[in-house]
Design a protein around this nucleic acid. Structure first.
Lengths: 231, 231
DNA sequence: TTAAAAACATGAATTTTATCATGTTTTTAT
DNA sequence: ATAAAAACATGATAAAATTCATGTTTTTAA
């Protein structure tokens, strides 16, 4: 594999690393290691320790926890420019989730020492980290309230809109990520059959179109109404 | 009211402020403002902006979001030594939750400038903040998985154990916090009647004893088993 | 390429959970 | 102290969601 350079990494400027000096970018470059992961390959395992953070150069990643019955709960997604594994590194706790590529991905590993030296020496990086963590915590609180209070139909509509925001639509209004019905169920927090049924309903109501795992959002205002989102 | 001094604040040494120098403590003291809140009084409102963080000197606080039907979802609790409002301050977003005293509380307000100067000048404080945020994010992920996958009965048992860990038991094994059945339902994510019914069951099975709003945990191993917690 | 496995789909039955109705007890405010 | 309000409690009913069963389609691997 050809090692990608942070220098030429397209997503660096909209990432947590956007404020790094040339010298700092070179330091990160020198200390990092990169890997290609095929669809389905695991980047790290829940419960393990981490000695650095992972930066997504290319591809799409799902982060999930295993529930007590061995069922996956997808906590969030990461894509080019995002970092993963920082929560465990900073809290000095084991990884709270596993990370798995949902399409071919290139992921760089930045060792702990490098991360901590950036935190110490680059206030902008530090504030970016604080901001990322705080933002994620706010998102998590919203998800908690939704899971606790909204019925499955609303949560599925909301999930489709979240996937649109995260991965965007192409020209044909198709969400740019392919997930199985089971994976959708593992975001929504429901049974696979319920997702299948509700997707069929959304299709019948012409809110979406289905072509295999591709989902086209035909009527976003109506999906928003179903999701019961007021903000 | 008598203004409490950080200097003599019993919880400071186990809080995020434990690493402050004498000078820094004096600076915080000089810039802070304190208030007493009676049970039921609101400290801040979801959706508003904040210009600092709130440090609990005494008392117990619930943090909650309002769901789309106007129902409270309790996200977490705070007690002496804890800080609240930092998520919104650091993410530069509106407050994601409201804070309300569930018993008489003394809460100090530390202005933004003071917080940011500590972040910049005291690496230990900064790391404590990063650690707190990361830890909270991990807790939130666990809650998400539980809400998505565990039935109400298990979640209620788990909630009782969480309250035990947060507020501790007295000599009679009573959880040291008084919550209404409705508030318990707003943690668990269920209907008030379901909480009432399940508490009666737990009582019949001699896992707990009920005396008004006091809950005594008689059989913690069995509660743990019901909660289906393997760690 | 073809057999096996996995994913998708749908109906029926069952379980879980919420809602509604009603009565009692406790708390709060005058 | 007492009336009103809120909280607690429980049964009956209804709704929501899961599970089970079964068949089809799609994907994967030999």
């Amino acid at each position: 594999m050809e090692m990608p350079h942070c220098d030429t990494c397209g997503s660096r400027h909209k990432s947590v690393f956007c404020s790094l000096s040339e010298q700092e970018v070179n330091n990160v470059d020198a200390s990092k290691g990169c890997n290609i992961y095929d669809r389905g390959q695991v980047i790290f395992h829940e419960g393990n320790r981490t000695n650095g953070i992972y930066c997504i150069n290319k591809g799409k990643i799902k982060l999930f926890q295993l529930g007590s019955e061995g069922k996956e709960q997808i906590i969030r997604f990461a894509k080019a420019g995002d970092i993963i594994g920082y929560r465990a590194l900073l809290s000095e706790e084991p990884l709270s989730a596993s990370a798995e590529a949902i399409e071919e991905a290139v992921v760089c590993f930045i060792p702990k020492a490098q991360v901590f030296s950036l935190i110490t020496d680059n206030p902008n990086f530090n504030f970016k980290l604080l901001k990322t963590l705080s933002h994620e915590l706010g998102e998590a609180a919203k998800i908690i309230t939704d899971l606790a209070q909204k019925p499955v139909r609303e949560r599925l509509a909301e999930t489709l809109l979240m996937l649109k925001d995260t991965f965007e639509l192409n020209e044909e209004k198709t969400i740019q990520v392919k997930l199985s019905r089971e994976e959708l169920a593992n975001i929504v927090g429901t049974a696979t059959e319920s997702v299948i049924r509700l997707l069929s309903e959304f299709k019948k109501d012409e809110m979406i179109a289905l072509e295999g795992r591709n989902i086209r959002l035909l009527n976003i205002p109506e999906l928003t109404r179903v999701a019961n989102i007021f903000d």
